[in-house]
């Protein structure tokens, strides 16, 4: 079987589009089997593909919990994101004459997780198209973008049709009930256990913070993501929430902030995107703290219920500047 795919790949190498598809198929199925024969050798067997698949694996429990509570609709969103995103990725790979990058496996998954399950499909598709094209492909594809493509698509449709992106169903295996998210309703009447384990209304990826935390800690331990970023986000959010309890009336407890809305997903899976985060160790920490600070700032003082999406985008905007500052210091001290 492997030889069949390899044969197919080798024969179609010179044909545009078909060749790239064959290459992508071969890489997806068999890549780690190919051992390099010449130096340099890397001790670890990690590759971009393994890297991406580990993140997808860390997100699958969250998706399964969502399917349990919402029915098959979250899966449908993932399939659509993979279909539309894969088509755009393939088209631009063909334009650029480059192999298809596996990055969209992760972004397709995340696209589904940042939308509520009852989002209209055309809104969802618009978000995927806008995010893939304006967030990533126009910059030259994976690894060259400035803003997180998933959140770029999300923010563009959020600003265009705020009402259609707001979640309106309550997760329940029996039947769906319309309800506002805990952040929007402004009340803290849930037990800490429900807040932690779920099920919680909101976007698909917000269903169970416990599973998001578990997946996030898993990829941090696997060194897929840098632990400094989620630590920074959570610490920044906790500190700002603590400070806000002195400044503003109606501030909610720290644990409520750390367990609600898009914050866990943003801390572990959005902010840690290696492309759009800073490159140096201490700038990563500062970047995380900054995002955590912004999340609480927006939740507490802006007329928006949730700020995780905007905070990560603002963090992305500041990331290159943080790196420039780090570089300037480094030049001075060396």
């Amino acid at each position: 079987m492997e030889r069949l795919f390899r044969w197919f790949r080798d024969r179609t190498e010179s044909i545009p589009a078909v060749g790239q598809l064959a290459e992508a198929l071969y890489v997806a199925l068999y890549d780690p089997l190919e051992r390099p024969g010449v130096a340099p050798f890397v001790r670890d067997a990690i590759s971009t593909k393994r890297y991406m698949f580990t993140v997808v694996a860390a997100l699958i429990p969250v998706l399964m919990a969502a399917v349990w509570y919402y029915g098959p609709r979250p899966l449908l969103l993932v399939v659509i994101a993979y279909g539309v995103g894969g088509f755009i990725e393939g088209f631009f790979a063909w334009l650029r004459d480059e192999p298809i990058n596996e990055g969209f496996l992760v972004s397709g998954m995340l696209f589904a997780l940042v939308f509520p399950p009852d989002v209209p499909l055309w809104v969802f598709m618009t978000a995927v198209v806008l995010g893939e094209i304006f967030g990533k492909e126009l910059f030259g594809g994976v690894g060259r973008n400035i803003f997180n493509p998933v959140l770029t698509g999300r923010v563009l449709v959020f600003l265009s049709w705020p009402a259609l992106v707001a979640p309106a169903v309550y997760p329940s295996p029996a039947d769906a009930v319309s309800v506002a998210t805990y952040l929007a309703s402004g009340a803290v009447h849930q037990s800490i256990w429900t807040m932690f384990a779920g099920p919680k209304p909101g976007c698909i990826g917000e269903i169970s913070p416990a599973l998001v935390y578990a997946g996030g800690i898993f990829i941090a331990l696997m060194r897929i993501s840098d632990w400094r970023i989620p630590l920074g986000v959570l610490a920044g959010a906790a500190f700002t929430a603590w400070a806000a309890s002195f400044l503003s009336v109606g501030a909610r407890p720290i644990w409520f902030h750390l367990l609600s809305g898009g914050l866990p997903l943003a801390a572990f899976f959005m902010a840690t995107d290696p492309v759009t985060s800073p490159r140096y160790a201490w700038t990563k920490l500062v970047y995380g703290l900054f995002i955590g600070f912004l999340v609480i700032l927006i939740r507490q003082w802006a007329p928006l219920p949730e700020g995780a999406m905007f905070s990560v985008l603002l963090g992305n905007a500041f990331a290159p500047l943080l790196d420039e500052i780090a570089l300037a210091f480094r030049k001075k001290t060396v």
Binding site: F134, L138, F139, A302, L314
Partner: peptide, 24 residues
């Protein structure tokens, strides 16, 4: 796309991110 076009696109995305502060 290099140069002015990408600057305009980035300005738009930056403005979208800054819209979080609107009405604060």
């Amino acid at each position: 796309f290099a140069g002015v076009p990408v600057t305009l696109l980035l300005t738009g995305l930056l403005a979208a991110a800054f819209s979080a502060f609107a009405g604060m």
